[in-house]
Design a protein around this nucleic acid. Structure first.
Lengths: 160, 160
DNA sequence: CGGACGTTCATACTTTGGTATGAAATTGAA
DNA sequence: TTCAATTTCATACCAAAGTATGAACGTCCG
């Protein structure tokens, strides 16, 4: 019950603030009215002050009302911005090929554009070993050249 | 000169509208002042009317000022939403390379995994012509082999 | 233990890729 | 029209990729 009241008060706190402002204004105006009208007798300045005061009040009210709406819009769109897409290896397709660890390593370096000689250097192996791994993985991938292997690896999403 | 004036009037049309409103209001108020003060002698009602009137005016002004800003916010976020994932050729990077039409065609088929012989068949050209195009595009792309050309083309997003 | 599998390497050979050079035809702009 | 760029093709040669075969070593598993 207390929680319900708190919620209600919180929800309509702007209206409460507005009512309070009105009350304060009425006292202020009565004081001004007494000063200007009774003491100085200058009605036009008094009217002018009221006009400016309530114009500012109107602006403030409108800003309070629209601020919430603008925030909502921003939030909705931010949810859609989080649509990013990092690369993920298709483990299913990868395991279908039954590549060995070394063969997959060689394939990954191939996709990066490395030559057999460069791959041999990277893995501290001889050129002939790389050729063997390459030839074997071509058979498993059912291709006849490194360029087709690269294209298929990209298409099946088994390398970055 | 006339165009300049038009532009200025258009840019500050809101301020002009506000000034006009003020003028109209002054006449209205003077008329009301005469009615209430001289005729009915009820100052409080007159003040109340002014307060309500200028509150509404303030709200209207604030809405005019914020309407444009809200539209801007929405537009900014929509631009980011348009950043979807379908592949787009990076025309800037592509034009930097200054590839000829044929060279680009050969590159595209290379990326698809085709051999020089297959590319020659596809484009109804001789093998030696493909080799020439390939060699020339390698120089322009600053690479030394087709696999590096493929990797770079993918990285720069100049082929699908 | 023995055999399947993976890894490494070598040699020999064929195919493909890549460079160099030259040349002819075409096209578009100065 | 003249000139530069593009496109086409050829020949020759070297480098790299790819295939085939064999062999040695280590690990894991039934």
């Amino acid at each position: 019950m207390m929680h319900f009241l708190k919620t209600v008060f919180h929800r309509y706190r702007h209206i409460g603030a507005y009512g309070l402002s009105i009350a304060v204004l009425v006292f202020l105006l009565k004081w001004l009215q007494w000063n200007f009208l009774i003491v100085d007798n200058s009605l036009d300045i008094y009217i002018g002050l009221i006009a400016v005061l309530f114009t500012v009040l109107g602006i403030w009210i409108a800003l309070q009302l629209t601020r919430g709406r603008k925030a909502d819009v921003v939030t909705v769109h931010q949810v859609q911005i989080v649509e990013a897409e990092p690369f993920r290896v298709d483990q299913v397709e990868l395991e279908k090929l039954k590549l060995t660890t070394r063969e997959y390593e060689v394939l990954q370096l191939m996709v990066k554009g490395h030559s057999n000689a460069e791959i041999a250097e990277s893995l501290f192996l001889s050129l002939s070993t790389i050729k063997t791994h390459a030839s074997n993985l071509f058979v498993k991938m059912d291709v006849t050249s490194r360029t087709k292997a690269i294209e298929k690896a990209k298409r099946l999403r088994i390398t970055a």
